[in-house]
């Protein structure tokens, strides 16, 4: 497993292979290129093209639009109450990411550092790790009951649940990372009379940065694209997320496929834009989050 060192830094392509890349295999390059264009980009191309057309241009679905109908986006924007749903989703995502990073890393740090010395923390570690085997679907029905009793079937409530439910996985991720941090720094800070909280936030927290990035990306992807939890927990039409709104409005689009696809593009666009800018970090983050 010496590979891990390589994977944890932000340049996944190892230096070693660079010098061997003198002779380019063009056949392979073109095969991979053609496959990427048709298989991966094809459905996305279809989505965008349909979103830009009007029904009269739909006889050949694949053709480029002769005339671009931006008003599809305007109509879809209004029909699905996009701004409200977007802000709801943004709120859940951003608040979740920030709170997850602070609270989960703190818990993970303490548990990892003291679990070998203290039975209680060791128990906590195994408690959280075993909770990873309980999928959301298993607790869904009783959770719905409990959440409604606490009046948490709204945006704030679901955000809170995301922060809590992310714990098992994030403790798993952070603990692998914390193990690699030498204790010398904390010991020095402790000698200087720093309090536990100070030690964590001043010394350890900044060192965990690469793992924060990974956790942030994974939490973001989870909450932004999640459908099941909003579906069962959120009921007020004002308190829906983008994914849930897409499901709810499906029937109202009827055969207006152009409008429906324009609304899909609206939902996909923020993630696509983010991907274009942070692609390298996202890929590195997801890789290091999974390969331990």
């Amino acid at each position: 497993m010496q590979a891990n060192a390589d994977l944890n830094n932000n340049t996944p392509a190892p230096r070693k292979s660079k010098k061997r890349k003198k002779k380019v295999n063009w056949t392979l390059t073109s095969v991979m290129m053609v496959l990427a264009i048709f298989a991966i980009l094809g459905p996305l191309y279809i989505t965008i093209v349909i979103a830009l057309k009007d029904p009269s241009q739909m006889s050949n679905v694949l053709s480029l639009p002769k005339q671009i109908h931006w008003e599809n986006f305007k109509n879809a924007w209004q029909m699905t109450n996009f701004p409200k749903m977007f802000l709801n989703t943004l709120f859940i995502t951003v608040v979740n990411v920030i709170f997850t990073i602070f609270t989960n890393s703190m818990a993970a740090y303490v548990i990892t550092r003291y679990r070998l010395k203290n039975k209680f923390f060791n128990m906590m570690y195994y408690y959280f790790i075993s909770a990873m085997f309980i999928p959301f679907n298993v607790i869904m029905l009783p959770l719905v009951k409990e959440v409604s009793a606490f009046h948490m079937d709204n945006i704030i409530g679901i955000t809170f649940l995301y922060i809590v439910f992310g714990l098992p996985q994030n403790i798993f991720l952070y603990s692998g990372f914390v193990k690699e941090i030498p204790t010398a720094l904390e010991e020095a800070a402790e000698m200087d009379g720093a309090k536990p909280m100070q030690i964590f936030f001043k010394v350890i927290f900044p060192l965990m940065k690469p793992m924060h990035a990974t956790v942030a990306i994974l939490s973001f992807m989870w909450t932004w694209n999640d459908f099941l939890m909003p579906l069962v927990l959120l009921s007020n039409p004002d308190q829906q997320t983008l994914q849930l709104a897409q499901y709810v409005f499906q029937g109202q689009f009827s055969t207006q496929y152009n409008l429906a696809f324009a609304s899909y593009v609206l939902v996909l666009l923020p993630v696509l834009i983010m991907y274009v800018f942070f692609q390298k970090y996202i890929i590195a983050g997801v890789t290091s989050g999974s390969v331990k």
Binding site: M221, V271, Y275, I282, I283
Partner: peptide
Amino acid sequence: IYFLPYMLGSLI
């Protein structure tokens, strides 16, 4: 490119 679909919600 090959990683792109990971970013998209399965519902859409």
